[in-house]
Amino acid sequence: MNGLWVHIDEILRCRQTAQSRPARAVLLSMIACIVTFGMVYGAVMGSFGGIGGQRLWQAIYSALKVPLLLVGTSLIAWPSFFVLNTLAGLRGDFVRATTALMAAQAGLAIVLASLAPLTIVWYASSSDYGDALRFNGVMFAIACLAGQWLLRDHYRVLIEGDPRHRRMFWIWLGLYVFVAIQMAWVLRPFVGDPNAPVEFLRREKWGNAYLVVVRLIYEALVH
């Protein structure tokens, strides 16, 4: 248990890149962190309508979906990031860059889990589904900002060694956000409307997050 806290502390204080453990072990421990803490927040997130009867399934589904969102997005964006790093001549630093990315993801999951008690209090105070969605949106926004902060800190060492890492940092953010928005859209519902049946994924068409946003903007401008 003590080792776990030390590990969490190392991630939050950006000490991962400096330690001497093998890269594979560091990466595996970070993925374990993402899964564990992502599941904690996901379970809390999905407990909006309570955990009795069928609603327990919503908590379980959400507990599975939050780590899936974080790990799946990284996996999808990772191959292009690898090729672009290689093309830019930064292949030698790629293991460190990947470690930095995963540390930021792990940090994001830890921050999310730390915000879980606030979510519980909010659920205990309000029964409005729309408010619950917005509150969780704010929690995710805070965690994402913290994750980006961590990523910037981890990347600072790399950028000091080679300024071209700065460009790769922004490219990763672009790729990650582009995929993550659609991934979150596909994996919804995370909170789960208490008046709707519990389901892992929406049965209706998956659709496209960007199209919805473009149409909303278009309608707001035209009408």
């Binding site: 964006a77 191959p79 292009s80």
Partner: peptide, 9 residues
């Protein structure tokens, strides 16, 4: 190579 790397997306 870049094209294929963007394939998963």
């Amino acid at each position: 190579a870049v094209l294929a790397s963007l394939g998963p997306i």
